[in-house]
Amino acid sequence: MTTWMLRRLIQAAFVMLVMTVIVFIGVNVIGDPVEILISPEADQAERARAVAALGLDKPLWEQYWRFLSGALQGDLGRSFVFNEPALKLIAQRMPATLELAITAVLLSVIIGIPLGLYAGLKPNSIGGRIIMGGSILGFSLPTFWVGLMLIMVFAVQLGWLPSTGRGPTRELFGVHWSFLTWDGLRHMALPALNLALGNIALVLRLTRAGVRENLPMDYVKFARAKGISPNRVVFVHVLKNILIPIVTVVGLEIGGLIAFAVVTESVFAWPGMGKLIIDSINVLDRPVIVAYLMMIVLLFVVINLIVDLLYTVLDPRVRLETKE
């Protein structure tokens, strides 16, 4: 188990390293670092001074080394726009995004699993067919368009829910959260649903496929032959078997949700790091872009690690193998 953990950690560190190289090359080789790092108003002499100060006259590997050691110390440059450390800006915006993404994950499980169970248990019912048809829409509709429609229907036409912003927040562990106030929750409803839509479809399909696959199995029949209640057969015997792949996939999708929050946050003006990155790209505030990219890769790697761990906890078969 420990060697397995160690191997995964080394793998994760390696992926991080590769990403620093890619981002470094992207900023310094593909893009023009002078343009990126020095404000456009600077004159010729200022430029030369800045180039020297930033070490841009040094060989590439030395520049990379500076970038890497800076990154390791949490220094990824200062934002031109806000004149604050880029990493700090990202960190300030992160809770809003995480809150949104986690709510979306919860929604996709809370909505997706029951719908999938229904569609799996009654594949030929009208309800089951509608659910499956709807899931195709959930997959292929562009997120931003669905977001617009949600706003149009629920905010503009019906006026039930607010369309933009985060609403009032409350502090917990020194961080501001929307989910702690009723109005904050109302603000979160539409964006979270919008972000969750694709994942609802995914979870629903996985659940349905799992049910269809597991129901004909002998263990289900044997469970029924023991006289236990149908609810227990479905919710304990079948669901526990299906849950393993679902947890794995949903876990791996959290990273995707955080990335996709970029779109949802833009539509709903949700002040998370996705909104920040779009604004930063639009004004070419590259230190913030770099910080965002590094941060999100880190999130990815950590999430994958946790999902792997969770998987081994859930599936007794894998658990045994890793022990030996």
Partner: peptide, 13 residues
Amino acid sequence: FPAILVALMILAF
């Protein structure tokens, strides 16, 4: 890595 992230990265560069 999700497509949107890769695309963002490239357009950012």
